[in-house]
Nucleic acid binder design. Sequence first.
RNA 1: GUGGGUAUAGUCAAGUGGUUAAGACACAUGGUUGUGGUCCAUGCAUGCGUGGGUUCGAGUCCCACUACCCACCCCA
Length: 421
Amino acid sequence: MTMLTQAPKGTKDILPGDVYKWQYLERKFREIAAGYGFLEIRTPVIEHTELFERGIGGATDVVEKQMYTFEDYGGRSITLRPEGTAGAARAYLEGKLYAGVRPAKYWYETSCFRYEKPQSGRLREFHQFGVENFGSHDMLADAEVIALADEFLRGLGVAELSLRINSIGCPVCRPVYRKQLMEYLSGHYDALCDTCKSRYEKNPLRVLDCKSPVCQGIAAGAPVMLDALCAECAEDFAALQTGLNAFGVGFEIDPMIVRGLDYYTKTAFEFVSDRIGAQGTVCGGGRYDHLIRELGGDDVPGVGFGMGIERLLLVLSESGAEIPAARRPDALVVFLNEEARGEALRLVKSLRGAGLIAEIDTAGRNMKGQFKYADRIGARCCAVLGEEELRSREATVKNMETGEQVRVRFEDAASAIGRRD
RNA sequence: GUGGGUAUAGUCAAGUGGUUAAGACACAUGGUUGUGGUCCAUGCAUGCGUGGGUUCGAGUCCCACUACCCACCCCA
């Protein structure tokens, strides 16, 4: 019984009282993305499971144990998208968008699904804004993507997010580094925490951002990826910083940043807050030079990010940033009796036609009830129609804040009430 | 998957084994047969997440389950 009134674990309704916040962020993001020349792309919620296995990497946590995967009635293995990049990359190939302008720059807003244990800032269904730039090796593409996120976040009035960047190398230098790191860690193996012991074989890079104090101490003395970069990667990392400076984006280098999805190469970055609990990464992204090839396309490089909207909302409320309130109703048309109702309906229609938010009671309330209703919905005015008004063909317009009343002809009501956003 | 915390009305809650489970807000009706928000009056949990147990007696103690929150892990 209770199941019927309970959303599945880790999902959240966005109730009417909160929707304006989402609409505000969506409007802002759309504006900024458009200004940077990114075009919107919409892709399916479901994809073939193999897309994520090949794209994200079969050994990652996301693919191993967090995907909502099922077999459809045609026997296909289908998965609810756990992130946005793989689907965008697939659409890029399938839509032959590589035949168009290069680089191809897209943005999207999507819901994503991962089977995880919910906590603050982590849901099973969550939403992200994302952007992808396909087709450029130039670090200015990375810098531009980061600048877009930075400008967006700054424009919302969130000051306390810090941008951390790193380079995680490429298939040439990463294996070399990995070997160095494993050699170093093997000397401290017994001291590592249990999870890091298992990381040692599977993904030694992850030991670097372990939160256990002991592992942190060990990590502090570990060789650093940045020192092990090949010539090309080192050059690119320098170019990235030059680009960010040129865009006027402040950043700090954090050699401990590691991406959890296998497709990342070179640039890795995060916008992090320390005020919204343990899940502080609001935006994370980087470069993925081999994803498209992995999916069966040509060797097209890419760079992009995903930004968690729920986490962003947490940051916003934590920082006290202003979100413009939803527009209030301009007027409730109040009618005294049955006789006045027809005229009242004509009036509400004409007010709506003039672009106002106008309401009329549809619940059979008496006059007093209608005024209460006006109050509850926050209507700025009431336009009252009774016997006198019908005779004189004038409505009584009452300002609900000041209580002041004026008589206006029906055809002048819309301009008398006006519109306020 | 592993830990920790919480669960009393629509909401926030008081209640620390003993008569009828505080209070506030919200809501409903009335005070006003053409005027709301303010004010006043009245109403609003045979019930304390669910199921067991201890006890003369359980919202209060014990056990199990469920849900939510937080943290690990991982990431947006």
